[in-house]
Design a protein around this nucleic acid. Sequence first.
DNA 1: CCAATAATTGACCAATTGTTTTAGAATAGA
DNA 2: TCTATTCTAAAACAATTGGTCAATTATTGG
Lengths: 218, 218
Amino acid sequence: MDIILDRMVKYITFDPSNVKTSLTVAGRPKEFDEVDALSRAQELFWRQGYGATSTEDLLAAMGLRKGSLYHTFGSKRGVFVQATKQFGHEFLRALRQALQQGSDPLEVLCQTFRALADPSHAAAVAAKGCYFGNTLVEMATLDPEMQHLAAQGLMAVEQVFYEALSQAQQAGQLSQSADPRALARYLINLWNGLNISRRMYTPQDLIPIIETGLQVLV
Amino acid sequence: MDIILDRMVKYITFDPSNVKTSLTVAGRPKEFDEVDALSRAQELFWRQGYGATSTEDLLAAMGLRKGSLYHTFGSKRGVFVQATKQFGHEFLRALRQALQQGSDPLEVLCQTFRALADPSHAAAVAAKGCYFGNTLVEMATLDPEMQHLAAQGLMAVEQVFYEALSQAQQAGQLSQSADPRALARYLINLWNGLNISRRMYTPQDLIPIIETGLQVLV
DNA sequence: CCAATAATTGACCAATTGTTTTAGAATAGA
DNA sequence: TCTATTCTAAAACAATTGGTCAATTATTGG
């Protein structure tokens, strides 16, 4: 992958004499799909965290042998870094699509929070919670770089919230005196709180918490 | 300890013929203070979590040899359980004292949250965060019993919040239509959120989040 | 002093950890 | 076909993991 990317860069940037360079490269081709393998890793890290996931766990889930994993990703941590980055891209793309497409972004925003108290959603995702939040808590005292990566993810979510709130304000759904940046951060904190509270309250009990939390928007 | 407790129970409940039973018992006495040792363990679990703390880490911090640790606590998990219980008792005692003693419990409650954005507090505790919240996140998918223990701790905090809010309501500081139970849970969620948000924002940036979060109380 | 009990010590343990190595297999380009 | 390159497979690795054990030491009560 890196090799091909490297070639792509050269392909585009080099002078015309090199245009004929192939995008592929000599050598045995990969027998697995990197994106797919990272998705499996993602799932494990999401459910169990980094420390509680062993390399053997990863190998089994990704369908790889040690050689392939270490050749491609360098280390267990390397898998974690790439899986986390991939999750970030996927999650943010989906979130942006949900919040930017509807005609009423404020309503979609509220529904996004309310969905966290939906029992069906609860069964599927609540056990895992927020990938960023989990990683941030686990890595905070162990790996500053990973902590930063997780924090970056959440700040990107903040940005999406901010854009939705700005849009709502321009549409007159939000008081002109409201501060969309401050509200976005407040909502991130509500989000983060629910990542923990979900594990101690029933979906039923989460509803009033969410409604009280969203009160500041109306 | 268990032995002495057992003797204490017998001492109190048995018929007078057994009153002479000593509270101590034959055998070599413990050379370390259990409460103190658990405090050291607590500190480690708090900072690094359970998985990232090895038995060797524990032995070094607690000043014990393997034999003593396993004789007294049974397992690494046993240390975790007891350290967590001890933390719960200590933390809740301190919190109750802070909230129940002042003449203005609502004000103390707000100050408790504002303290989370105090840089000096940040340096000391923010890196570790909330023991209950951290444990809840880590144990949620690994150890249901420990998850329950951590959740219990947070629900006890909820109860302390509830009592402060009820008191404030009776004193007329809170609208009669307010629901102290719902507000207490909302505040627990604010608390839980800050346990994660603290790791991505500066203390400066936490302030408006906290103030917005406390807005529902006025 | 003796028997019973309990705590400490240090050696020992099997299993698992993340990682490396070495040999071979599969491809592209010359 | 030869060479360079990349990927895979399997074995081997040292280190660390959480935990056990037998022998010894310290205490209480009779």
